[in-house]
Amino acid sequence: MLLFEQLLNGLQYGMTLFLMAAGLTLVFGVMGLINLAHGSLYMIGAFACAVVTKATGNFWLGAAGSLAAAAMAGALIEMLVIRRLYSRDHLDQVLATFALILIFSEGARWLFGSFPLYLTLPPSLAGTVTLPGGLVYPVFRLGVIGLGIAIAAGLFWLMHNTRLGIRIRAGEADREMIGALGVDISILYTLVFALGAALAGLAGALVGAVQSVQVGMGEPVLILAFVVVVIGGIGSIGGALLSALLVGMTDSLGRALLPSLLAQVMPQASANTLGASLAAMSVYILMAAVLVWRPTGLFGARA
């Protein structure tokens, strides 16, 4: 029973990671850009959700606000800063987006202070349901899993069945050629970036609703999303989905099982802290193992 609950937790965690990683991997794959500021977009989404929910009293409007705010912020930084970085090497991209993190984090601290904000969920989402088998599980977390599946399906549909998706994949393969065929690359890039940003913002709102909304919440998730992208292979949405679930499961199961395993050989208190950090490490060990086996990730075609 505990195991089943942890599997669901892992699934839910994996889905939020997927929302982050999908945007990252798209931006990597299509524009060849490494974007550290993706975590800031996640934070912007969470703050927008908190502010709109507080002002209107409606969580759904808050979630819509997080999508809109993150997409707008994404489009804005793409046009002002990111656009100048496509032709630069990865070092410049890392640094410029690191600079963006500093600006966004300190800006958010200035606007909202260092104290975490908490969201209240609407009653329809705040309760629990009893699943077949007698497990009691929060509705909201089930909703996150469902939403993740829906968005993954939507992204696959977008990438494979729409003109926009065809253009995005074409841009991934040969950006000069699709420019020559008359597609306005810069609008396409802004769209892709804003799409990735909106997904990150939504992930921020979802996680912010369960935990708390605070400055610096984006970076730990960002680094995990990087791990997901590396394991899945850069540019592959399917790879990102699979590896997000893998990472989510590894983390949740590790956190749940390791402390009790370690408690057999050491006091409970230190088993708890050591177990938690071993679980956090296990994700990176998983990544190292995958890279030894396949240096370009599970679904990565090229380095």
């Binding site: 990865h90 990087f226 950090s277 990176y284 990544m287 890279l291 240096p295 990730g297 380095a303």
Partner: peptide, 21 residues
Amino acid sequence: GVYFIMVTLAFAQMIYWFAVG
């Protein structure tokens, strides 16, 4: 390339979490 940047970052995180725990 990008993989190297992220892999070195991830190894550093691994050691970070070890030190925390």
